[in-house]
Design a protein around this nucleic acid. Structure first.
Lengths: 332, 332
DNA sequence: GTGAAAGCGCTAACAC
DNA sequence: GTGTTAGCGCTTTCAC
């Protein structure tokens, strides 16, 4: 089928070992041999077989990335950042979609481990079972979220502070009834965002009102439904904070459904700074995450672990920024 | 390090071959043996080594996907569709970013081929050198674009018809000076979109005016610059057609820069139907591509090729839809 | 400097 | 049914 090192050796009139040495770039070889082997390799169109190489090296130079949904621009951005640090280091990224489902995540993880990836970065689904991977000694870094009890590095943003800051901002603008549209607290980042929201309210001397919180689901449809419910109440909130980008779109849709405008009728602060947030009228005030940096940081952590770093698990927190635009009412 | 089939066999008190048979699910094995092997495999935490398996099977059950930019929602959607058909079939997809650069594409392709992927789907960069892959007999399907002279399947949309329809629509609305913001014609899909635009104008008895075409570049910044230039002319176009989603954002930004509103000042028709297109005011009229279907079709074609289909190369054209909204002026 | 030989973990004949 | 044996394509001692 494909040409092997053995055939190159034969064509060059040297032993397999010699050919391997020049092609692999290790060990000694006379300039003459080097010349002839290189020549016949090129002529025959030899491509090294990474599979065979991985088998003996016990290293694949591949890492797996498991995300809930590659269509979420947030994850796509992370993937990009990750690849940007891993590829120059010689690694190939194997991407798997888990659909935010523990079962699919399991099978993706199994497939990746069977492929003997040298490391894994995963955005864990709720109830992810990562201990086994850690126990097996596979370098692992959690991204965006962390599963409790898992002794592995985690790279994420300052979710609590981020959402508290967003809520504080709304409080400063005079809002007292601030609604929350969030994903399930089973996801650590969501739990932190919910906690940050509540903490900000408490600090302001306001009680937490369950009627103002719509929690669960992470899609645009979920956000639309949640926001719709919140905004249909007779005592509807005067402001809404959405904890992820899909739900921000959903909230905007719900507002349109109900004929409500931001910031006059409801002020809005969303999560994730995407292109369209400045395109809509009014432009959306958001908590911006350093997307590519998250991926890069995860890549660097993984590189360190694969390089032999055996220190205790690290939690890396990247800072978010509150990008104030018009939807919150700070500027008309 | 990790547990091998040999250790499982020893623990179960059978030969390596027997263990392999029950673990691999092929050949015969007595219920008793089956039982004991399964048991010790579970106890030892055995994970089959896909690398070793691939070496003997001469098949990796992995396919490579090379896209220009995974952060482009269009490609992310394709990737998703592809994974949706390939993963259930047992394949893992290896993702590589080529940054729309022939050099990076080459190295990505080399890495993937070294890994001995069973098939490849690539969104070829301009000047991509795919012949070699075809010659090597690696199943290949081109996605979104096709490189001339490459005898491989290609899955794409009806670019020419799509953009002609968009332009026709603007013509019907009375526009006579219709600007074009497009990526380079070196990319086959762009070339087709440009051709469709010109054809529609000619059919309407209008000449092609170079001053109305701004071609080259594919980013948001490029689109902004192009649109800005077109719209700054004294005899500026009354309508603009943008040939990809990033450039649509750019055009919108340029219009804002110049204080121009759609559709009153300039009518706008964009490419790709993304969430935000209905969120902006006015909602953007777009040519919608069947994103996931493109990925799925590519996956199916690849599956067929990997399954032994040796028929002549096929060009699969999926249909786009013109989604009429407010930015073109059809509805106020 | 170069070659012979062993072995990475697994599959697949082919005997028994 | 089960074990023995020979590789898959490569790296890596270890002699010569």
């Amino acid at each position: 089928m494909t040409v092997t090192i053995r055939e190159v050796a034969r064509a060059a009139g040297v032993s397999q070992a010699t050919a391997a040495r020049v092609l692999g770039g290790y060990g000694y070889a006379s300039p003459a041999a080097r010349e002839r082997v290189g020549h016949s390799a090129a002529r025959l169109g030899y491509t090294p077989n990474a599979v065979a190489r991985a088998l003996v090296a016990r290293a694949t130079m591949a890492v797996g990335l498991v995300v809930g949904d590659i269509q979420n621009p947030f994850f796509a951005g992370c993937a990009r950042g990750l690849a940007d640090v891993l590829e120059p280091a010689g690694y190939t990224v194997l991407l798997a979609n888990a659909d935010e489902d523990a079962g699919r995540e399991r099978s993706a993880l199994d497939a990746l481990r069977a492929r003997r990836v040298d490391g894994l970065v995963v955005v864990p689904a709720p109830e992810a079972r990562l201990e086994e991977i850690v126990r097996a000694g596979v370098p692992l870094v959690q991204l965006d979220r962390a599963v409790r009890g898992v002794r592995a590095d985690a790279v994420m943003v300052d979710n609590g502070a981020a959402s508290a800051r967003a809520v504080d901002h709304l409080l400063e603008l005079g809002h007292r009834r601030i609604g929350l549209v969030s994903d399930s607290p089973q996801i650590s980042s969501s739990a932190e965002r919910i906690a940050g929201y509540r903490q900000a309210l408490r600090r302001a001397g306001l009680g937490v009102d369950a009627a103002l919180e719509s929690i669960g689901g992470s899609t645009q449809a979920d956000g639309r439904r949640s926001a719709h419910a919140l905004l249909s109440r007779p005592d509807r909130p005067t402001a809404i904070f959405t904890a992820n980008n899909f739900m921000t779109v959903g909230a905007l849709l719900a507002m349109r459904d109900l004929g409500l405008r931001a910031p006059e009728d409801v002020a809005l602060v969303g999560f994730d700074d995407l292109d369209w947030t400045t395109l809509v009228e009014p432009a959306v005030t958001v908590v911006a995450q350093p997307v590519a940096d998250l991926g890069r940081a995860a890549g660097e952590r993984l590189l360190a672990r694969m390089g032999g770093d055996v220190g205790p698990p690290r939690r890396i927190r990247l800072r978010t920024t509150l990008v104030v635009r018009a939807s919150c009412g700070a500027r008309a």
